[in-house]
Amino acid sequence: MNPISNPGEFTELDRFMFESWGYLIIPNVLSEDEVKECLEASIRLHESEGAKGWAQVGKGYETESALERLIDHPAVLPKVRALYGERFILQSAWCTKQPAFGGVGGWHQDGSGAYEFSKLGYPIPLIQLRASFLLTDQSIPRTGNMEMIPGSHRSQVQLPGAIRTAKDDVPIGHVICAPSGSVLFFHNAVWHRTFTHDGDYDRYTMHYIYSPPWVRCSDRFENNQEFLDRTTSTRRYLMGQFARPDAPFGASYPAEFEKG
């Protein structure tokens, strides 16, 4: 039983599944050649940073064209627009590597260490919408899959601390099994973790996180001007390079008061 969606349009059924489970699985987004190109780019990215063990590296789109093309992929962007409307940004993009024979990760919700999203209200609002491109095969369990707790983005209580500390299993955990080239699309408040990886190869996933335009970026302090100069207008917009539709604070006041 999986919340399977098709690439592109965010349908009424997609919305129902996303609201109910907190995530969607989109198979067949990337071709074999595209997966190979993105995987090679991800390996170069980690090697250039000297990343060891489990690691995540940001801003790969600045130097790797294959990863840049995923920023506004037509299989994903219409779904992001359906949930956020017309104004949102790419808050961050992280390439994660789980090393060969990697162990299980800790249960968590996505958010900010500086200010937990759970403080904003119930249900926890959609602040980080993640599209995770699987670049190595995860069609069977124990291949570095993501494990999700369906519907947990609506829970009014936290996952028990003892379970989080011990990294224990839960009876409603759903290990996501999907081939390389698939996308896992999920809400920040869904409890999830990295599942065990028994393979003798490193597992790579490329994550793109979309947020409202007022959220601070987490993979960069400022946009790379060289990247902005050569990328597309849509991607510049997603970097947050757009004019504000209103002025801070005094937008609803008559013009004579705006000078004060």
Rank of each mutant, 00 (worst) to 15 (best):
S139G: 14
G60V: 11
A100K: 15
G144P: 04
S48Q: 14
Y115R: 14
M146P: 00
A100C: 09
V57T: 12
I71L: 10
P78A: 07
Q56I: 11
A82F: 09
I140W: 07
S152L: 00
L135E: 01
I124E: 03
L45N: 04
G121I: 06
E49D: 07
K52S: 08
S112T: 08
F88D: 03
Q91S: 15
S65E: 15
S92T: 14
T136F: 01
G121Y: 10
I89G: 00
P123C: 09
G60L: 11
A51L: 07
L45E: 01
Y115V: 13
L120K: 14
G106N: 05
A51C: 08
S139A: 11
A114L: 15
T143K: 11
I127Q: 04
A131P: 04
D137S: 09
F88P: 02
I140C: 05
T143E: 06
D72R: 08
Y115I: 13
E40V: 08
I124S: 03
H46F: 12
S65D: 15
G121N: 08
F133G: 01
E147L: 02
K52D: 09
P150G: 04
G113I: 11
A51N: 09
Q98E: 06
V104K: 14
R142H: 13
G50R: 12
Q138Y: 02
G85E: 06
T63L: 13
D137K: 05
L45W: 04
G50L: 08
A66L: 03
G144M: 05
D137W: 04
P74H: 07
G85K: 07
Q138D: 03
A55N: 03
E64L: 09
G53I: 11
F133I: 11
E40L: 12
E64A: 08
V104C: 13
S92R: 08
G53C: 10
T136C: 07
F88E: 03
E86I: 05
E86P: 04
Q56E: 13
E47Y: 10
